[in-house]
Amino acid sequence: MMEVDYGQAQIKAMSDAVAAGTLKFDPAAVADVVKVLDGVIDELDRQRLKMDRGAKNTGLAGFPSAQQLAVGFSGKADQMVDTIDQYIVGTIRLQETFLRAAGKYAEADQMNARAIAAASAAVPGRTT
């Protein structure tokens, strides 16, 4: 899986500022942000499923050239699924950081566990 920094450096910088106590957010505002980000994650999950299913249903004939195309499409789809997985984990990490900035540590810990589970599920060779 190709690892690309899809905002991870910025999320880490924000998390570091929260840990240092220099960044704080209103808990009510953070609840709204977390809810919006839940919607982002839900949509990413839907797109991931579509991409994963689409890679397996190319509709191409059994000719050798069609089989080669199917392999290529499948590889690109797998790369896209990996990228979506990284976005999902990053979005959960962002939720965790916002929750910590609002002093909602128990909820932030739950998000941390969710991010770990999502990252574990994104390991190559998983079944979907």
Rank of each mutant, 00 (worst) to 15 (best):
A77Y: 04
L60R: 08
A55M: 11
M111L: 14
L44R: 01
R126D: 05
A17D: 05
A31S: 11
T58V: 11
A117H: 07
R46F: 08
P124N: 07
F63S: 11
D45N: 10
Y6P: 02
G62F: 11
P27E: 09
A108L: 01
A102F: 06
A61I: 13
A101L: 02
A55E: 00
V33L: 14
D109E: 12
A55D: 00
L23N: 02
G62E: 10
A122T: 02
Q95S: 08
G7E: 03
P64V: 14
V123G: 03
R53M: 14
G62W: 02
G21C: 11
G7C: 10
G90F: 04
V81G: 01
L94N: 05
Q47H: 09
A29F: 14
E96S: 02
V4S: 01
G125H: 07
D109A: 15
I116L: 09
L49D: 09
V40Q: 05
F73T: 08
G62T: 09
F98D: 00
F73H: 06
I116G: 01
Q47M: 11
A66T: 12
R46I: 07
L37M: 15
A17M: 10
N57K: 12
A20E: 10
K56T: 13
A19T: 14
D82L: 13
K35M: 10
D85S: 01
K104E: 04
G59E: 02
M80H: 05
K12F: 07
L44A: 08
A17F: 06
D78V: 12
V123D: 03
T22C: 06
T128Y: 08
Q47T: 06
A108K: 02
M111V: 07
P27A: 14
F25C: 08
A106F: 06
Y6L: 15
D52S: 14
D38K: 11
Q47G: 11
V34D: 07
M51K: 05
M80V: 15
F98E: 00
Q47D: 04
R48Y: 01
L94T: 13
T97W: 00
A108D: 02
D16G: 05
Y87P: 00
A113H: 04
M80Y: 09
K24T: 15
Q67G: 07
A122Y: 03
A106S: 12
G125Q: 01
V123F: 05
A66Q: 09
L60D: 06
P64C: 10
I11S: 02
I41F: 03
D16K: 09
T97D: 00
L99M: 12
V40S: 05
K35Y: 04
D42I: 06
D42G: 09
M2E: 06
V81K: 05
M1L: 11
D45F: 03
T83Q: 05
G125Y: 01
Q95G: 01
Y87A: 07
T22I: 10
V40W: 01
D109V: 09
Q110F: 04
T128N: 09
D16T: 11
L44I: 08
G90N: 09
G39K: 00
A13H: 02
F98Q: 00
A66H: 10
D109H: 13
A19N: 11
E107A: 15
I84A: 06
G72Y: 03
L94D: 01
